[in-house]
Amino acid sequence: MVAQDFVVDLNKPLVFQVGHLGEAYEEWVHQPIVSKEGPRFFGSDFWEFLTRTVWWAIPVIWLPVVCWFISLSVRMGLTCPHITLVVVSGIFIWTLIEYSLHRFLFHIKTKSYWGNTVHYLIHGCHHKHPMDGLRLVFPPAATAVLLMPFWNLVKLISPPSTAPALFGGGLLGYVIYDCTHYYLHHGQPKSEGPRNLKKYHMNHHFRVQDKGFGITSSLWDKVFGTFPSSIIDAKSR
């Protein structure tokens, strides 16, 4: 059976199936199934459990960590105005990281078995099942692993007293991003700003998947020329 003839059985765990799609994976993963019931990923209950995260776990787990890092800079003598400036800088830097990860990693084109499998796990599943509420935010265990190299990088490029607040600001930016992302899929915004942001993100999912990579804002899409030329109205989903 050639890869293009492979048919994914949605009634069976998906992760180890999608790799067999080969070059057909790219088209398959961008044909969304709009259902609030998520698919099963693994046959193992343990691994399946690790793929599911309620949205509120993100602020509950990471906001205390943000506060702790910022407090380290306070104890090293940074003034409130300085702390504020550094934290806001960290949030701003995160918006660029958010855009870059989404554009260059989450939307990388793959066709090999393991390339398809890994891509499905980190982002393809979200495009295939965009309303799966338990796979909209990043699992905290995976985030904890990724934070270590980021923290080491921040320590390398900034003064000791500034590094904790800068890292805390970046982590706060991540928390805002993940909560915003969940809200854009499951919230019903009433005011114009959030409504336009939801419309912008739904356009990325259901119309133009290779544009509109910003989640918390469209700033970097405008800077780097990936702002979509037209945007559909957000539907209630």
Rank of each mutant, 00 (worst) to 15 (best):
M148W: 14
S73M: 11
M131Q: 02
F41W: 06
L121R: 07
C67N: 07
P139D: 12
M76S: 12
H107I: 05
V154A: 06
T95L: 03
G22E: 10
K111Q: 03
P140F: 11
V34D: 14
I61S: 04
V154K: 01
A141M: 11
T110F: 08
E48S: 11
I83L: 09
C67G: 08
W55N: 13
F69H: 13
V60L: 14
Q31H: 12
L136G: 06
H119C: 13
G43C: 10
G77F: 04
W68M: 12
Y25L: 15
Y120G: 05
K155A: 15
A142Y: 10
K109G: 00
P64N: 07
E37Q: 07
A142F: 10
C67Y: 01
T79N: 06
P64D: 04
L85C: 08
P149R: 12
I61F: 08
V34R: 00
C125H: 03
R75M: 09
F92N: 04
Y99M: 00
T53R: 03
T117I: 10
H30I: 02
E23H: 11
W55M: 14
H82Y: 01
W56G: 14
W68S: 08
P39F: 05
R52D: 09
W151K: 15
G124V: 09
I70Y: 06
H127Q: 01
S89Q: 08
L21D: 06
V88M: 04
A142N: 12
W56M: 13
I122L: 04
G22Q: 06
L78Q: 01
S112F: 10
S44Y: 00
E23I: 08
V65Y: 05
Q31C: 14
P149L: 15
V137N: 08
G124Y: 03
K111P: 00
C67V: 04
P32M: 09
F150T: 09
V66M: 07
G19Y: 03
V118H: 02
G43M: 08
V86Y: 02
Q31L: 15
G115N: 03
T79D: 04
W94H: 03
A141F: 10
H129K: 10
P130R: 01
V88F: 02
